[in-house]
Write a protein that binds this DNA or RNA. Structure first.
Lengths: 151, 151
DNA sequence: CATCAATTATTGATAGGTCAATGATATAAC
DNA sequence: GTTATATCATTGACCTATCAATAATTGATG
C-alpha cells in the first residue's frame, strides 16, 4: 500500500483534503453549506419541484433534505405545499424575493468556482471532469463485486 | 453561474459526489472511517509520534483527533503516554499485536484503491494528481485575497 | 521568581450527515 | 372493497466534524 500504489494513495488522500478545503472555503464565501447551496441551485432551475425529486438530485439523505427544507421554510426562503392529486408528495418552490436575492448573490460569487479552477485550459477542464467521472464509475462498480466476500 | 462556467460547476459538484461515494465505500471495505484509517496509516509509519504532530498530518480538527484516539485507546489499538521532559505533549504508539493485524488487513484491502483508479495509465494518474494539486493551490490562494471585502 | 504568553489536549455546544422505524397516503391484487 | 405493498416525508438515535472555551504545563521576560 505504501510503495506500489503510492501515487494512487496520494490521489486518494489529496482528493479528500482538497474537497474538505473547498467545502470549507465555499461555505465561508457563500454563507451557506455546499448542500444548502446545491439545494437552492436546483430550486433556481425549477419553478417548482417535488421534494422527492429534489432529494434525488442532491447528494444527501432524505432526512437531511427534510431538515434543510424546514429551516429554509422557517427563514421564508422557500414555500412548501401539497397538491390535490397526491397528498404524499410535497412540492417545493423558492419564495420570489428570496429568488432575486439568491440570483444576485450567485452572480457576485460565481467567480469563486472560477478561481478555484483558474489556470486550467478548457481542454484540461474536460479531461479533469472525465477523470473524475471515471473514478465515479469505478467506485460504483467496486461495491457490487468486491464487497461480497467480506466480513 | 449556469452557462459560462457550467463545466466548472459540474466539476465542483462531481468532486463532492465522488468523494462522498468513495468515503462511504472505503468505510464499508475497511471497516473504519477514512479518518480513522488515515490515523492508523501514519501510526504504522512512525514508531511513536506526538499527538500534535499526528494531528497536523491528518486532515481533521484536534478535537476530533482526541476523540478518535480515545476510542482507539479504549479498544487497545494504541497506547498513549507522556514523557518526563514535557508533560503537555502526549505520545501515541500502536499496540504491537494491533500493528500486525492492521498490516495484514491493509495488504488485503489495498486493492480497493487500485480498483478505484483502474483504467488509468500511469501518465493519467500523474496528471490527475497534478490537477488536484493545482486546485488545492488555487483554493488556498482564494482565501487570503477574495474574502477580504465580503459581508 | 512572578507574570505573561505559547503549546497541548480536552471538553461542551452545535451542525449536519446516516440509518432505521414510523405514519400517512396511494396503488395493486385478489 | 379489503388487504397487501409501495411511496413519501418525517422523526429519533447516533456519529463525527467544527469552533470556542478551558485547563494544564512550559518557556520567556521583566
Amino acid at each position: 500500500m505504501d510503495d506500489s500504489c503510492s501515487v494512487r494513495l496520494q490521489i486518494f488522500l489529496q482528493l479528500q483534503a482538497v474537497n474538505k478545503d473547498l467545502c470549507s472555503k465555499f461555505e465561508t464565501c457563500f454563507g451557506a453549506s455546499t448542500s444548502r447551496v446545491e439545494i437552492l441551485h436546483y430550486l433556481l432551475q425549477h419553478e417548482e419541484i417535488p421534494q422527492s425529486a429534489l432529494q434525488k438530485e442532491v447528494n444527501i439523505d432524505a432526512a437531511a433534505v427534510t431538515r434543510h427544507l424546514k429551516q429554509l421554510e422557517a427563514a421564508g426562503t422557500i414555500v412548501r405545499y401539497k397538491k390535490a392529486d397526491d397528498q404524499r408528495a410535497t412540492w417545493v418552490k423558492l419564495d420570489d424575493t428570496a429568488k432575486r436575492h439568491i440570483k444576485e448573490s450567485y452572480q457576485e460569487k460565481g467567480q469563486f468556482i472560477e478561481e478555484t479552477l483558474a489556470d486550467f485550459s478548457e481542454e484540461e477542464l474536460k479531461q479533469f471532469l472525465y477523470m473524475i467521472n471515471k473514478v465515479s464509475d469505478n467506485v460504483s462498480r467496486v461495491t457490487k463485486q468486491d464487497l461480497g466476500g467480506e466480513k
